[in-house]
Design a protein around this nucleic acid. Structure first.
Lengths: 346, 346
DNA sequence: ATAAGAGAATTAAACGATTAGAAAGGGTGG
DNA sequence: CCACCCTTTCTAATCGTTTAATTCTCTTAT
């Protein structure tokens, strides 16, 4: 099977292998009559070039390695799709390595050693496969830069902040600021925040956006309006209850992910607090379910597709020109749905 | 960079390239002292084998091509994860081709030509990359079998029914039968079905399961309990309203996907019909949102991970033994949540 | 008719590994 | 000390392409 190579073509068409190569790649002129003959044989024999051999000689694989911490995490597929769009356009191939971190080491990200082992072996395998660059998708990029730098191949991180300037992440601060601005425009002044754990950069940046809006729009600053959750539904539920039992409850709350926002909805429901009439809610992430809830929640859509695309753009820049041309930072976009309304007159 | 090859190692360690290859692969005995020397040089020079060259000579790439119609579709990442688990265990690599069908040709699957063009070029590219087999994930597998057969490489389809016996799909009929059995055990007799479009095999099989249960458990067969939706939320909403206004409404409804079930919830809510007190609902797919709704809906979980894993298992069987050993058909599993209760006594 | 030169086709050496088969090395018993 | 055998190491061909460098084949102008 499939053992028909350029040599067989050459023999049958009565030309040299070089000529076949030229008609295949259009690298040099070939007399039309000859080309025709070769093409005919190629079709007759169902010839298909062997990219392996081609790559070996030409030293180009047109292949990018993509490492994802976990492809089943909600934001990853869309990023991959963006990567793919770029790849299609530029005739690149993707080798996907799924670290399967959740399944293999659980959510215990402090298990640095296991983590590093997987990440390094992934990078190592990809390098052996002669990828021309790597894109890393995840939130906990234990540094593999050193490893990959040794081999002079570029890497771009996305969905995480690194000290490297080779990463693509959306503007968290801007996003929460925009959400606040939207609420202010609706007439809200007493706006609470339910943040996620403060141990990550995005979390802190989003809080900065909130705080910036509070100062800039001269909103009443009430420490009781600041709640720190743990990203989980229950914490959203619990903290919302706390907010609602305040003597002067907020009229709106910025919830830093949609999962906690579900908790907010439940808590409000139980307290007889109607959304959005009594409390406006803005979520974050645009998880699929946020559009199926009642009410459909207004949330920040993440520019995932664009992040994937930009990562590839940055990476190919690095591959070809060997220098980082900084991409524009992707922006989140607020999806106006049903969970926000102007505050009631008092 | 990275130009250190087996030759440099050989030179520096004062052995032949063959010897280096032997210590690298353990293909033949090497005297410990020599091995040590070689290993040291390998580490010193940061040598990493070139899989491209290796594959060319050894004619094995350990690479599987995965074609997905669209990676952003809810069920695909989990299937890929299953594929990955198998790949990890067997030291295989995955080249992922995302057809991006939704984005490129929209949902108009009748556009066979565009479709075929993409699928064939994907297969063709993968063959050039010398993958040892292909897994196709999607619902509309326009036949690429012919193409790939020409080159003697195996292909396994998953998440779709084909006339080929090289496909892995869960048992649709069993799944809906099981759901019915569960409802019957809760005491339900008047059970309606909201099916999806009947133009697909899964749809018809699921209906068969429903019908089989109706006969087997001798339930009252009422044609008005049979509704055909279009998989969309609105159709679930509309058809549920129809069911609820029947003179003798059902006490339970089997909704063939979770999206339509959201419609059911909304319709019930509007009609003052409480779920599960007045109407039990079983969904299908275990979409992420089904666990965030109020009530959390009881639904059929799809064995996606297992499908991916089994596909790989079948494929590697095909690659190595050249014969299909039929895998066990993966089964769906009912997730009992909050949308089912025994019917009210009348 | 012929030299020059453009254009087309060929030759052959890579690319970086694997792997038969040959050669060398080492140990043992007679 | 040598023959024998087993182990270790080496030589060199090979996988399927690409691509300099070269050779061959035409035109065309003189």
């Amino acid at each position: 099977m499939n053992k028909v190579g350029i040599k067989e073509i050459a023999a049958k068409a009565n030309v040299s292998t070089a000529t076949v190569s030229y008609v295949l790649n259009g690298t040099r002129n070939v007399r039309p009559k000859t080309r025709e003959r070769v093409v005919k044989v190629i079709e007759e024999l169902n010839y298909r070039p062997n990219d392996i051999a081609k790559s070996l000689k030409s030293r180009r694989t047109n292949t990018i390695g993509v490492i994802a911490e976990d492809v089943t995490v909600f934001n990853v597929p869309e990023i991959i799709d963006g990567i793919n769009e770029f790849a299609d356009k530029h005739d690149l191939h993707i080798i996907l390595t799924n670290l399967r971190l959740h399944r293999r080491v659980g959510h215990n990200y402090s298990n640095v050693d296991a983590y590093r082992k997987y990440a390094e072996s992934a990078v190592s395998d990809l390098l052996s496969k002669q990828v021309e660059g790597i894109i890393y998708i995840g939130v906990h990029p234990r540094d593999v830069t050193g490893l990959i730098n040794t081999y002079g191949k570029p890497i771009v991180y996305t969905y995480c902040y690194t000290d490297q300037n080779v990463s693509i992440q959306y503007n968290d601060e801007q996003a929460s600021f925009d959400a606040m601005q939207y609420l202010v425009k609706q007439g809200h002044k007493r706006i609470a925040i339910i943040s996620g754990l403060m141990d990550s950069t995005p979390s802190r940046l989003r809080f900065n956006g909130y705080y910036k809006a509070v100062t800039e729009f001269q909103l009443p600053f009430n420490p009781q309006y600041i709640k720190i959750g743990d990203w989980g539904l229950d914490s959203g539920y619990r903290l919302t209850k706390e907010l609602l039992t305040l003597s002067e409850p907020p009229t709106a709350v910025l919830v830093m992910n949609d999962v906690m926002a579900v908790g907010t909805l439940r808590a409000a429901d139980e307290c007889g607090c109607q959304i959005p009439r009594d409390l406006s809610v803005v979520g974050f992430d645009n998880r699929e379910f946020s559009d199926y809830l009642n009410p459909r929640i207004t949330t920040m859509d993440l520019p995932l597709h664009e992040m994937g695309y930009s990562s590839m753009s940055m990476l190919t820049g690095l591959i070809n020109e060997k220098e980082v041309k900084q991409e524009e930072q992707p922006l989140c976009r607020l999806l106006e749905r049903e969970s926000v309304a102007p505050p009631r007159q008092e």
